[in-house]
Amino acid sequence: MSLDQPAHRRPRVAAAVLAGGVGSRMGSAHPKQLLRLAGQTILERSVAALCAAPEVDEVVVVMNAAHLAEAEKILAEGRYDKVSRIVPGGASRSESSLAALQAVDDYDDNDLLLLHDAARPLVSGRTITACVTELTEVGAVGVAVPSSDTVVQVTLDVSGREVIAAVPDRAALRRMQTPQGFRLGVIRRAYARAFADPGFTATDDCGVVLRYLPEEPVRIVTGEESNIKVTHPSDLAVAEALLRTGVAQ
């Protein structure tokens, strides 16, 4: 695949905020992306971060279908000018990613797409810029941070209980974050192959490229510890503390 661009224009950059989940682990009747974090919804903070990035031309929101109208109202009131459309998400992360791809079907294969979890509302402009910069050289990038914990691989013993099967070298391990960025031609080809595979399952878009386009390198951008994912109620408290202390903006 050639990454060369016509001399008359730079690649367009679309960013998709994936907010299709229900956030059941938050223990709330409301999707976690619509919970408030320091006066704004989590969804708004993620959208605002991408809208503020000068590299991003357009923002698409992939929303839980049952709360589409509520998201439209919230984002309209916030006047996020780069938000071009809000579309319903699917039953899985991969189906929501596919909805994002379909929303930018007018983009060329050499244009860029950033896929970002709405549940990471503290993503920095530095991280977004780094992803777009790396995509001038490669077709896929992921944001990750080194693992400070020892990670073990487990299996089940004869009684059905977990036991340690292996202890991978921590120096080679990273914890993935978002955004994840792609040349559209790359992620389109990867998903075309994935959805043709009856055994396809995935929770990570870089993993789709890794599995179905093994010849395509996925470069790592070093992320930030403050780019946390709000999954449990305690994560919301941590995010509020990061904003309050100025560690995250």
Rank of each mutant, 00 (worst) to 15 (best):
M1I: 10
M1P: 08
M1A: 12
L3Q: 08
L3D: 06
L3E: 09
D4A: 15
D4V: 06
D4E: 14
P6C: 07
H8T: 09
R10C: 00
V17K: 09
V17C: 05
G21P: 14
R25W: 10
G27Y: 06
G27P: 11
H30R: 13
P31D: 05
L35C: 11
L37E: 00
Q40I: 00
L43M: 15
E44S: 15
S46F: 00
V47E: 14
A48M: 13
A48H: 12
A49I: 04
L50A: 09
L50H: 15
A53I: 04
V61T: 03
V61C: 07
N64E: 12
H67D: 05
L68Y: 06
E72M: 08
I74L: 11
A76S: 15
G78Y: 05
R79V: 03
R79E: 15
Y80I: 05
Y80E: 14
D81F: 09
V83S: 06
S84Q: 10
I86H: 02
P88A: 08
P88D: 10
P88W: 09
A91T: 09
S92R: 08
E95L: 14
S96W: 07
S96F: 02
L98S: 04
L98W: 13
A100S: 13
A100R: 08
L101M: 14
V104H: 08
V104P: 13
V104F: 10
D105N: 06
Y107F: 15
H116M: 03
A118Q: 02
A118V: 05
R120V: 01
V123P: 07
T127P: 03
T129F: 04
A130L: 01
A130W: 01
C131M: 01
T133K: 12
E134L: 07
E134G: 03
E134P: 00
L135P: 02
E137R: 11
V141N: 12
V143K: 08
V143G: 08
P146E: 15
S147H: 05
S147N: 10
S148W: 13
V152K: 10
T155A: 14
T155F: 05
V158D: 15
S159M: 03
I164Y: 00
A165I: 03
A165C: 08
A165H: 13
P168F: 08
D169H: 10
R170E: 06
R175E: 05
T178F: 03
G181P: 01
F182L: 06
R183G: 02
V186L: 06
I187M: 04
A194H: 11
A196T: 01
P198Y: 12
G199T: 14
G199R: 14
A202I: 05
T203C: 04
T203R: 12
D205F: 00
V208S: 08
Y212A: 02
L213M: 11
E216H: 04
P217T: 11
P217K: 14
V218S: 09
R219I: 08
I220W: 06
T222C: 03
G223D: 14
G223E: 13
E225V: 15
S226Q: 15
S226E: 12
K229S: 15
H232W: 00
P233Y: 07
P233N: 02
L236R: 11
A239M: 04
A241M: 14
L242Q: 06
L243M: 01
L243T: 00
R244L: 12
